[in-house]
Computed example of a mutant assay.
Amino acid sequence: MNAIVKETVDRCRDAGLRRTKALEELISTLLESGRPMTLAELASSDRLAEQCDKATVFRLLQRLIEHGMVRRLGLHERAAYFTLLLPGRHNDYLICTSCGSIEAIKAPCPVHELEDEIREKTGFRNLYHELEFFGLCPACP
């Protein structure tokens, strides 16, 4: 098992989630994908298709979201995308309001300095942010 997968599974166990093969495979799939994935993509992936059904994948995703280990992205009327949250790693996203495509922003995050300032002034701990920009992608008219 990959070290990042093991660390994430250990975080899940510390949060009270049962360590199951399906949980390990879901985390591995999200980690290896390198991009946010839909429920359908996850459930039909090579790692998960034979391991569990779509409902089980959905329940696992919901638990991971509740415990702050997975982030749900996308427009509410379109398919949701899911991405693994890892300590020390951060991605902001561009989301097309026409086709629903999602891509990570490949630029420094402009909010990190503000986050540090807010943390210092307010005393908040475990502070984080999620930044999504919405617009029309180059492929959409």
Score class of each variant (00 low, 15 high):
residue 29 T to E: 01
residue 12 C to E: 09
residue 63 R to W: 09
residue 80 A to S: 15
residue 57 V to P: 00
residue 39 L to D: 04
residue 123 G to L: 04
residue 16 G to H: 08
residue 79 A to R: 09
residue 97 T to F: 00
residue 117 E to P: 00
residue 90 H to A: 05
residue 33 S to H: 13
residue 104 A to E: 15
residue 52 C to D: 02
residue 70 V to E: 02
residue 8 T to Y: 07
residue 20 T to C: 00
residue 90 H to I: 04
residue 134 F to M: 08
residue 126 N to S: 14
residue 112 H to S: 13
residue 19 R to V: 14
residue 78 R to L: 06
residue 98 S to A: 14
residue 81 Y to Q: 07
residue 11 R to W: 10
residue 20 T to D: 04
residue 129 H to D: 13
residue 74 G to T: 07
residue 21 K to W: 02
residue 52 C to M: 03
residue 46 D to F: 12
residue 125 R to S: 14
residue 56 T to E: 04
residue 37 M to C: 09
residue 128 Y to N: 15
residue 34 G to C: 08
residue 30 L to V: 06
residue 132 E to Y: 11
residue 79 A to V: 01
residue 41 E to R: 06
residue 2 N to Y: 12
residue 97 T to M: 11
residue 84 L to Y: 06
residue 21 K to I: 05
residue 87 P to E: 07
residue 72 R to K: 15
residue 22 A to H: 09
residue 129 H to N: 13
residue 32 E to S: 12
residue 11 R to G: 05
residue 138 P to K: 10
residue 89 R to F: 12
residue 68 G to I: 10
residue 69 M to F: 08
residue 58 F to K: 07
residue 49 A to K: 12
residue 12 C to M: 11
residue 86 L to V: 15
residue 24 E to P: 05
residue 95 I to T: 13
residue 64 L to M: 10
residue 91 N to A: 13
residue 102 I to S: 09
residue 58 F to W: 06
residue 89 R to A: 10
residue 25 E to H: 10
residue 127 L to M: 12
residue 77 E to P: 00
residue 53 D to A: 02
residue 10 D to K: 11
residue 134 F to R: 14
residue 80 A to M: 00
residue 7 E to Q: 15
residue 89 R to N: 09
residue 51 Q to E: 10
residue 107 A to H: 15
residue 134 F to A: 04
residue 2 N to D: 14
residue 127 L to Y: 13
residue 54 K to W: 00
residue 24 E to G: 10
residue 97 T to V: 12
residue 128 Y to A: 14
residue 23 L to C: 01
residue 12 C to P: 05
residue 12 C to Y: 05
residue 24 E to M: 05
residue 24 E to R: 11
